[in-house]
Write a protein that binds this DNA or RNA. Sequence first.
DNA 1: CTGTTAGCGCGTTCAG
DNA 2: CTGAACGCGCTAACAG
Lengths: 396, 396
Amino acid sequence: MVNSNIRYNKRTSQLSKKLLFWERSQYLGTFPKSFPQSINMLYIGNNQFCDCIIPDILTMKKHQVTIIDIARALNLSKSTVSRVLTGHANVSLKTREAVLELAKKLDYQKNMLAISLISKKTNTIGIIVPEFSSSYFPQVIIAAQEVATQAGYNTVVSQSNETYETEVANTKVMLANQVDGIIVSITRETKNYDHLKIFERKGIPIVFFNRVCDEMKVPKVIVDDFEGAYNAVDYLIKNGRKRIAHLAGPVSLRISERRLDGYKSALKKNNIEIDEELIISYDLGLSKVKIYVNHLLNMENPPDAIFAVNDPTAIEAIQVIKKRGLKIPEDIAIIGFSNDYASALMAPSLTTVAQPIAEIGMTAAQLLIDQINRDVSDWKAVTKVLKTELIIREST
Amino acid sequence: MVNSNIRYNKRTSQLSKKLLFWERSQYLGTFPKSFPQSINMLYIGNNQFCDCIIPDILTMKKHQVTIIDIARALNLSKSTVSRVLTGHANVSLKTREAVLELAKKLDYQKNMLAISLISKKTNTIGIIVPEFSSSYFPQVIIAAQEVATQAGYNTVVSQSNETYETEVANTKVMLANQVDGIIVSITRETKNYDHLKIFERKGIPIVFFNRVCDEMKVPKVIVDDFEGAYNAVDYLIKNGRKRIAHLAGPVSLRISERRLDGYKSALKKNNIEIDEELIISYDLGLSKVKIYVNHLLNMENPPDAIFAVNDPTAIEAIQVIKKRGLKIPEDIAIIGFSNDYASALMAPSLTTVAQPIAEIGMTAAQLLIDQINRDVSDWKAVTKVLKTELIIREST
DNA sequence: CTGTTAGCGCGTTCAG
DNA sequence: CTGAACGCGCTAACAG
């Protein structure tokens, strides 16, 4: 009767038949005597010992030690073992120590899958960024992870390679894995936000940073791109530059737009006419920078400065300019954006609009964790706008 | 009778009492009529429609849509819904389409926790590295992630901040989260490997790279550190350098040891006496580089070249040397190790022993996935030794 | 202080 | 073609 209920499935067949024996013995309530086992004395402190039967199967590879295994070996119920392991009160010192001792001996690790399934909480937050190639996103992630780890959250990071489809796929994975919340910076392609709105609808907190989705009312962490760009261009003008080109990002990204606005605004304020010829929007694919810079330098009336939408672009531009034998900053000045790792080290070192990168990551993580711990009805859609700082180096 | 079985727990109380209603209705087998709901017509293709009752609760925030919800709304059993969603055959076209349609409408996402709990497979691999501050580890991770993603694995990355305790904690988290395998590069402090041996014992594959654990018989991916160092120092000598200092890593790390051996070997081969004064082993804490470099430069007979154990060390050394007004490479030449991102861009650009970083990451991931798909008894402990390449730049 | 029971969401037999 | 029953590992309510 009992035997006939034994489920046999493919997984079991991977291992030896011993596992089947063991499974059956769980139903029968005892260890079959024929089953290899050793009787152990467990030292549970205070000169006390405790008998315990450890079948070999428990120490075999690929066998997950569970609370049932421990309970059975000590002739207890799994509830009691669970109580000990979760630190509940109301367990006698003797059983508590025996359980802890055996758990340690067998390298017991609680199965978070099972716990998360019950608690509906994985203590995991997802982070989705467009790329890892510049130092910007990795640094933000490091900062976010620090806060998350501190608060007891694991992080799962995925990059969308600047591709909308990958971003969508990544969000699905995050959902399926039941993350408690996500931090996102969208790709340069993303125009449809349905895949992100699902999180909102399901009550899973979402926080944007850097490249945000304007139409969603959720927390965001950005920098004042307008002001940063304005200050950079204003600085160039104050230093006598008259024809300032702008290598801009794709129009689809709000940050490109704001930086462009700042650029234009600084020109206007200083009564310099905006020359659309000097503004080149591109998709951030670095390989094209060479073409654009050469184009600018070949103009009849070439620019005497370039304000680049980000540091990788500026760094690439510098390489091109150096190769043409022009002098930086004498012939042409360059300013980047973000203060990437390399910008201080290269030659000439790059003047750049620094973002408070660590602060961005930490703020985003903190906002997310706040949302997670808040009731859905109580969500706040704050937008933190952090300040940039113009760092002046050799390139201007 | 049935009612008395209803479990009430704290989780439920977070939401409105409606949820309790809904839970109860699941036991009763029908929706209570008083419960807010809407009758929907589901278009299932081919001009066909299908009735379905969608209680408001299903579209409420914080309610996970499950196959049971879908089954109930369509008056089916969850088995049938499961069959459709897992793409099994033997489901009528009509029900299949109705299920898929409703699943889409409700943004149903399968709960991987439940599936992983059953299948004992999470399709997740863990990656543990000592730090993220140089570009080396992030780049390896990117490469590893690429292979992993391709093979259908998610990755969970954690850094141990060069601290043994953190590394141990990270491994526990990985175990608890049931990763299918891990890729590890140990901290400079790690001398006890028990926390890693647990994986071996539990039958969870583990692959080392860069900083490996010699005493474990598992797959490893390393580069020929000896040869890399030898070539670098030999090159310096061939270019007339006579007093070559070595800023070495901690003796606890095998890579430091091998690079040191390569350094010594090249000197010997060229009949240059080894001067222990010129060899400084340190713990890789960059802040101390300044002290060591100044110490070297203040010597009565200062070195005319420095071979650094890694690029961050070399880059830091260059900053110190430049500040003292010495010329690189005229007064002193520098070679680093690993070809970090910044080394090509800085001034002077850094001569370095390049590691095939992407290949390391991809190989490690591939080896791990191979192990995962192999039976425990069939594990192979290959050690892949990849070649380095000396990249000559301005610093020599 | 401890055991029994139910069920988290899902896939998978087994029996119609 | 479909439904009922079972259990992955665990926690929590309830009953001693």
